Amino acid sequence: MMELPQQPCTCGTSEEYARCCGPLLAGEQTASTAEALMRSRYTAFVIGDDAYLADSWHSQTRPADASAPKGVDWRRLRIRDTQAGGPDDATGIVEFIAHFRTADGRRDFLHERSEFVRENGRWVYVSGAIL
């Protein structure tokens, strides 16, 4: 697993990794919003943090293998829309586009509308619809 403490966070904010998604992936903080969880999950895909991906997935919808796909070079995350998912909400939706390259160099993207809920007081990913 790659770490990026002094580098800009891969989730697309202008913050350093150590002040953005880093504390979430390290378990030092929990996401305050559904969008923050979405961004941290994207970063987990980028750096290959399979444990974080599994831990941030709802217990009822988590697959047996929640690991990031191999051979994918995640390039950029764009948040298109958010609905609810704030610090005081119980549910939220985040629509995003994640650009990537495959092992053979082909460019592609994932456009998803993801659902999030609070489970045991913290945001978790439930499911997503590919758009």
Rank of each mutant, 00 (worst) to 15 (best):
S40W: 02
T10G: 08
T43R: 05
S67R: 15
R118Q: 11
Q60I: 14
I97Q: 15
E16Q: 07
Y42E: 05
R75G: 10
G12V: 10
A34E: 10
Y125T: 11
G22H: 04
D81P: 05
M1D: 02
W74R: 09
D65A: 13
A18R: 11
Y17V: 06
A18Y: 05
Q29N: 07
G27W: 09
K70L: 13
P63G: 04
Y52M: 09
S40N: 02
R122G: 05
T43N: 00
I79E: 06
T33A: 10
V126Y: 08
R122S: 07
E115Q: 11
A36E: 12
I97M: 11
V117S: 10
I47Q: 11
T33P: 04
Q83N: 09
R122W: 00
V126C: 12
P63L: 08
D81K: 15
D108R: 03
Q6D: 08
L24D: 03
E15F: 09
F109A: 15
A44M: 08
F100C: 11
G128P: 01
E15W: 01
E16G: 10
T10E: 10
S59F: 01
G48R: 06
A64P: 01
G86H: 06
G92N: 11
A66H: 01
L110C: 00
C20D: 04
A44P: 00
F109W: 05
Y17K: 03
D108H: 10
A103E: 14
A84L: 12
D65V: 14
E95K: 14
V124R: 03
Y17I: 03
K70P: 00
A64Y: 04
V126R: 12
P5G: 02
T102V: 06
A129I: 13
P69A: 11
A51M: 07
A98N: 12
A84T: 15
I97P: 00
S67C: 04
T61E: 00
S56W: 06
F45D: 13
M38S: 12
D88L: 13
C9M: 04
W74Q: 12
D50R: 12
G128Q: 12
A18E: 11
R19F: 11
C21S: 02
S40D: 06
E95L: 09
Q6R: 05
D104Y: 13
Q60A: 12
V124D: 09
E95A: 13
L77N: 09
R122H: 03
R19P: 00
G92Y: 01
S114C: 10
T102N: 10
A68F: 10
V126T: 00
V126Q: 05
G27V: 08
G105Q: 14
V126H: 12
R41H: 03
E95T: 13
H58L: 01
K70H: 13
R78M: 15
L4F: 06
S114H: 05
G71K: 08
V117N: 01
R113K: 14
E112L: 01
R76P: 00
W57L: 12
